[in-house]
Design a protein around this nucleic acid. Structure first.
Lengths: 340, 340
DNA sequence: CTGTTAGCGCGTTCAA
DNA sequence: TTGAACGCGCTAACAG
């Protein structure tokens, strides 16, 4: 264990002393103020990196009122969707000298309040609240003295700024792909009806079918977000409606189940029936037989966007309010388009 | 967007003024120093929460040298293994008034150095370095003025403190379970030989087999950590060695592939052949047919332990050095023990 | 162009 | 028991 020398960190006055100037001058020199002779600046800079000086952000923040930190308040770290958003945000901030406090409320409102207070008392400059579903969540309210952006789960208050995936257009995108592949008898198996993500995608699916002059085979089948449900539902569908030529699934997990069933029933994918899903979870999609076509929600991009909004707000820009939708992107693989 | 009132945060002197005392007294009163009359303390405390005062941690940190923050330096947020560790650590710290700075180096040494400097300049009180593999990684060195604990990927310097999964005993645990189930002709398919995790588990496997007076069927089959490899390897094995009654896989992904192949070849699991894996990745294990037995590495526990070591070091306890191993735990499901 | 002074918010002497 | 004064490291006024 490196307890090392308590090594009082090198301060600006150390630099100043070495360069033979006052701390004020050293400060100006290092911060690029223009009231300092070039030769002096030179000396200071040299002294600084000779001592490998780095300014103490606490002192700086104390003065500026800004800390250069933001809070990332997640409701769930287990979730598959939170992580990419987190990566995107961390990435965007990291590039901008901002550091990120991570807090996981674990879906508990009490814990969320607790963490919120902790973050505010640390004087974070901004806040990103990442939810685990796309359903609206309670607003943190408006007595928060820093900009707040809601990511993935939008706030239920339209006066807040939220960034969330555009699941309706994602559903449309999926159907348009299947139609472009020549499919006309399309069924839709998806997750829990309680999830806005399931309902929104289904809405997009119906809209696109309608626009193409088609109709869904059977009803939208809502149940669990699980592989097992994909298997069971596909078995029912393919048996009752043998004419189906495409099964659109509400998630990659469901897709995997559907794929399994198609295989069990001796239907070949994609020639006989196409299968596709949502989320583009690579572990599932790229290891399937055949590999799974999917709609990627661009979550990392979503995280970056949220971070940029916070940045903008920090610069005094009015970032507006309401919900901003991030489009998904189609990732075509062998389960809808045969590979030669 | 709550830009709210720029609302200069309430400071200690606001509290002092309201309570009609000096800042010094207010400070003492709120921090439980015992040189202050009870009635005075009372007044100050009331004033404080009337203004909902919370001390500025920057000012406090500037003075005390402690900030109540730690850095979590990960090499990879995508990885399946980093997240649970992170959760465990965040959980342990959160309970103790410590907040966590999250930095993702994305496997890049330059970025790691960059983040390290940033964290140190923010005066974090401690550091947890989370790697993505169990192979030793380069030490950050010993000129770091705060305690450092390496998690998952141990440091290559024995003078550092590292906490990592015990993969050798995990391998042993797996074989012992299979043997307890009456299996005697066991094969082992695993991931890349370049990974210590693969080699360590294989070592434990061989040791346990030896102890049971058994021998592995065929060689340990090293290749990719993928479902695809699981399928291919299982096909080779089960065809060449039809007597195999258990396939032990190096990961749940590989297990899933092996399961698929067993099914394709008409072998029933677990009656005919048992299958099990490592990692206990629930999305994969609980959705398989049958559900997959697996060894859970207790990563969340690992994260908590790492956090506790940092805590201890902060309290001045000598936390020692070397590598500490966290045992795995067997999670039995239907792929090794038939469910009625 | 450079240095002196002041103050960000807090905790800790040391006198009163 | 209380308060005035000092300093943590830094930057922004101002004066020189």
């Amino acid at each position: 264990m490196a307890r090392a020398e308590p090594a009082r960190a090198v301060t600006l006055s150390d630099v100043a002393r070495l360069a033979g100037v006052s701390v004020a001058t050293a400060s100006k020199a290092l911060n690029g103020r223009d009231q300092v002779k070039d030769s002096t600046r030179q000396r200071v800079v040299e002294a600084a990196d000779q001592l490998s000086f780095s300014p103490n952000p606490l002192a700086r923040g104390l003065l500026a009122g800004r800390t250069g930190t933001v809070g990332l308040l997640t409701s769930d770290l287990e979730g598959r969707f939170v992580i990419p958003i987190l990566m995107g945000a961390e990435d965007a901030f990291g590039a901008g000298q901002v550091n990120v406090f991570l807090c996981d409320a674990r879906g508990d409102t009490i814990r969320e309040q607790y963490h919120l207070r902790a973050l505010l008392s640390r004087r974070v400059d901004g806040l990103i609240v990442v939810g685990r579903q796309t359903d609206p969540r309670p607003s943190l309210g408006h007595d928060i003295p820093v900009p707040v952006v809601y990511a993935y789960a939008p706030s239920d208050d339209p006066a807040d700024l939220s960034i969330t995936p555009d699941n309706v257009s994602a559903g449309r995108l999926a159907v348009e792909h299947l139609v472009a592949c020549g499919r006309t008898r399309i069924a839709h198996i998806t997750g829990e009806h309680a999830y806005a993500a399931a309902r929104d995608r289904a809405e997009g699916v119906q809209a696109a079918l309608h626009a193409a002059g088609l109709e869904l085979v059977g009803d939208v089948m809502y149940s669990e977000w699980s592989e097992r449900w994909g298997r069971d539902a596909a078995a029912v569908l393919l048996t009752r409606h043998p004419e189906i030529d495409a099964v659109l699934c509400g998630s990659d997990q469901i897709s995997r189940g559907a794929l399994d069933t198609a295989r069990d029933l001796g239907r070949t994918v994609p020639d006989d029936v196409a299968v596709m899903g949502f989320d583009n979870w690579e572990v599932l999609t790229t290891n399937a037989r055949p590999e799974l076509t999917s709609i990627d929600a661009n979550l990392q991009q979503l995280g970056r966007t949220a971070a940029q909004r916070v940045f903008a707000a920090l610069d005094g820009v009015d970032i507006g309010s309401g919900t901003e939708y991030v489009a998904g992107r189609l990732v075509i693989r062998g389960s809808t388009v045969a590979r030669r």
